[in-house]
Amino acid sequence: MQYDPIKRSLGRVFNLHPGLRVLFYNLLDLLLLRSWYIRRELRKWRKIARPDAKILDAGSGFGQYVWRIARIGSGYSIKGIDIKDEQVADCNDFFRKRGLGSRVIFECATLEDFNEKDNYDLILSVDVMEHIEEDERVMKNLCYALRKGGMLLISTPSDKGGSDVHHHDSDGAVGFIDEHVRDGYNADDIRQKLHRAGFSEVETRYSYGKPGSLAWKLSMKFPILALNFTKLFFIVLPFYYLLAYPIAYILNHIDLAQTHREGTGLIVKAIK
């Protein structure tokens, strides 16, 4: 499955104007259920956060979550790090144009070599850990970078079929998203890894239960499969979402309101 080229194509379109990029962020917030879960956790964190909190987005991508955090806290200082030079440059350019360059910065860095001590109140890791072979090393680095009492917030696929990733099928088939180094995390396994990394408290919750998984197929999987088949589907896409998104929206609300025994995603909060 060629997922990254689709993301790059969309990114180039929405990068043509700062207003289009803001629209892109808003669309991601609407479409991606993981963003719904992250926004809920950020609202909880904000109630206890310092007004001058320092935040790290560890794997910032397009800068979607940095944008949201910068808007909910005018005193927050935020750093986004990513391994892709072009995305770091695009994000720095966009945030400067939006007048946020004084408290928001993006840098190119690898999490395996990240080395800052007691510097952050909150670290985000959204759909990053499943891409990293040396995940325990990264967890230790992020724990080291947090202040005492700081929180690491992780969103990642679970081992219950997260994102339809199945690299090791007996027939050799490749999963829907083929950039992951692991199919997903077992809840107990990631808790143990985080405790070994130095975190004192770890809480895990499943996301993407049955309603969320169906919403993800409607809002993400089916359109991306169609776009991989033919780019002409870009023309049909707005009409598809007019029909499919109201259903996905309701399913996302149901998923967020439920406590799931199992799900294809995990939301993890780890306290130093």
Rank of each mutant, 00 (worst) to 15 (best):
E41C: 06
T110Y: 03
K231M: 07
S170Q: 06
S102F: 06
Y241G: 03
K44E: 08
A270W: 02
G212P: 00
A248P: 02
R46V: 03
I48P: 00
A187H: 13
G172D: 05
F234I: 00
G73I: 09
Y120G: 13
I69L: 09
S170T: 04
V268E: 04
V236R: 13
L153N: 06
R147I: 04
F94S: 10
K148T: 05
L153A: 03
I38M: 15
G198T: 04
V126C: 11
K221R: 07
V236Y: 15
D93R: 15
I190R: 07
M220W: 05
L122I: 02
W36G: 02
D135P: 10
A257M: 05
F62W: 11
H253Q: 10
G63S: 07
T259S: 11
Y249A: 14
P211A: 05
P5G: 06
S9I: 09
D189Q: 14
P51N: 15
I154M: 08
L100F: 11
F239S: 09
L214K: 13
L16I: 05
K231R: 15
Y3G: 04
F95D: 02
E136P: 12
L218W: 01
S74D: 12
A145V: 00
I105G: 06
I224W: 12
L237Y: 14
G175H: 05
K79W: 02
I48C: 05
I48T: 14
L16R: 14
G99A: 04
D159H: 12
C91R: 05
L111W: 01
L23K: 10
F239D: 06
V181T: 08
G209T: 02
C108H: 03
Y25V: 00
D135E: 10
Y245V: 02
R205S: 12
Y245F: 15
L251K: 10
H168Y: 14
Y240P: 00
L242R: 13
F176H: 06
D183A: 13
R182N: 08
I83W: 03
R21E: 08
S200I: 00
Y25M: 09
A215R: 08
N26E: 06
S102T: 05
L152F: 03
R34S: 15
G80M: 04
F24E: 13
C143Y: 03
H260D: 07
W36T: 01
R261W: 07
L152R: 00
E201I: 04
I6V: 14
I105M: 09
R50I: 01
G263P: 01
H260W: 06
I271E: 15
D4R: 08
K84G: 04
R98T: 11
E203W: 08
Y120C: 12
V13M: 13
C143F: 10
A244R: 07
P223C: 07
N15P: 09
W45D: 02
G80P: 02
G101Q: 04
A244E: 10
F176P: 01
R182Q: 11
D164V: 11
R8K: 10
P238I: 03
Q258R: 15
I72K: 14
G19E: 07
R196V: 10
I235G: 09
E116N: 03
V104C: 12
H253N: 07
D82C: 10
W67D: 15
P223V: 02
I6S: 06
G101L: 06
K231V: 14
I224T: 11
L111N: 06
P51S: 11
